[in-house]
């Protein structure tokens, strides 16, 4: 057993942020120690509720994550955030800019934010993100928010690591409509039309509702209009997510009985 790893994991489990950060780096760079790390992480510990936020670049996902985090913090729930952005196919580099919107939480003891690049798993979620999510989960967070950008074929993987999937769309540019036509909204539990003050928001909502008529799970999919940067509709969104979280807990409890 690698002593260094053991110490890092122990510290992480007791809530030490630098150790958690370090371990995520080891996972990210596919260190040979990863299996060891994951073994030490006991899955029996209390799992946080996992919120997946997905949608096109520029839809306002980070702003929404920032606001939702504030709501959770007001309820004294601790939050872990993983913000995923794509790596350049050509250089392997990336600019991870989601943190800009979350500045107000930087110094909050109850919030941990990690930006991750896809590093080769284009379009979907990587194994590294899944493992990092596990680490943050066992480090003692009540809520885990995973923000992913761009919607590709494999984006449906978000459903694997999230208990609730929120898809953020915006009016204009037609990209959102393209997405819908591709049937990708199927994976979302809540579809948010953000920047609802922009022209075309109503049209987009109607299109979504039309599309959902053909969805295999139409009954439980919600469509909400939000203006995240103007604080309109965010509280309602939070409540809907909370409802799902509480239902989820109830189900779990019933299962355990």
């Amino acid at each position: 057993m690698n002593q260094k790893i053991k110490i890092l994991v122990d510290r992480m489990l007791s809530g030490d942020k630098p150790s958690l950060a370090r371990l995520i780096s080891l996972i990210e760079r596919e260190s040979p120690e990863v299996p060891e790390i994951m073994e030490l992480v006991s899955p029996s510990q209390l799992q946080p509720y996992r919120v997946g936020i997905t949608g096109l670049a520029g839809a306002g996902k980070s702003t929404l994550v920032n606001k939702l985090t504030s709501f959770y913090r007001k309820q004294n729930l601790t939050v872990g955030i993983i913000a995923v952005d794509p790596s350049s196919v050509i250089t392997g580099g990336a600019v991870l800019g989601d943190r800009i919107r979350m500045q107000q939480h930087y110094l909050d003891e109850g919030v941990f934010i990690r930006s991750m690049a896809t590093r080769g798993c284009y379009g979907g979620l990587c194994k590294a993100v899944e493992d990092a999510a596990k680490l943050i989960s066992v480090s003692g967070k009540d809520i885990l928010i995973i923000e992913t950008t761009g919607i590709g074929q494999t984006e449906t993987e978000i459903t694997k690591v999230a208990d609730v999937v929120v898809m953020v769309l915006t009016p204009g540019f037609g990209d959102s409509i393209q997405l819908m036509k591709a049937g990708i909204i199927e994976i979302a539990d809540i579809i948010v039309v953000n920047k609802a003050d922009i022209e075309g928001a109503d049209i987009l909502v109607n299109e979504i509702r039309n599309e959902l008529k053909y969805s295999t799970r139409k009954k439980d999919q919600l469509v909400m209009m939000v203006q995240a940067s103007n604080d309109i509709g965010v509280a309602e969104l939070f409540e809907e997510i909370e409802k799902k979280r509480l239902e989820n807990n109830l189900e779990e409890r019933i299962l355990k009985c």
Binding site: S87, S88, T91, G92, G93, V95, R99, I100, Q103, L107
Partner: peptide, 19 residues
């Protein structure tokens, strides 16, 4: 730096040393 293959976490403006 991105084009040099690095991952850049861009934090933006108006930050305190602590942040």
């Amino acid at each position: 730096l991105k084009d040099a293959g690095m991952e850049v976490i861009y934090l933006g403006l108006r930050l305190t040393p602590e942040q």
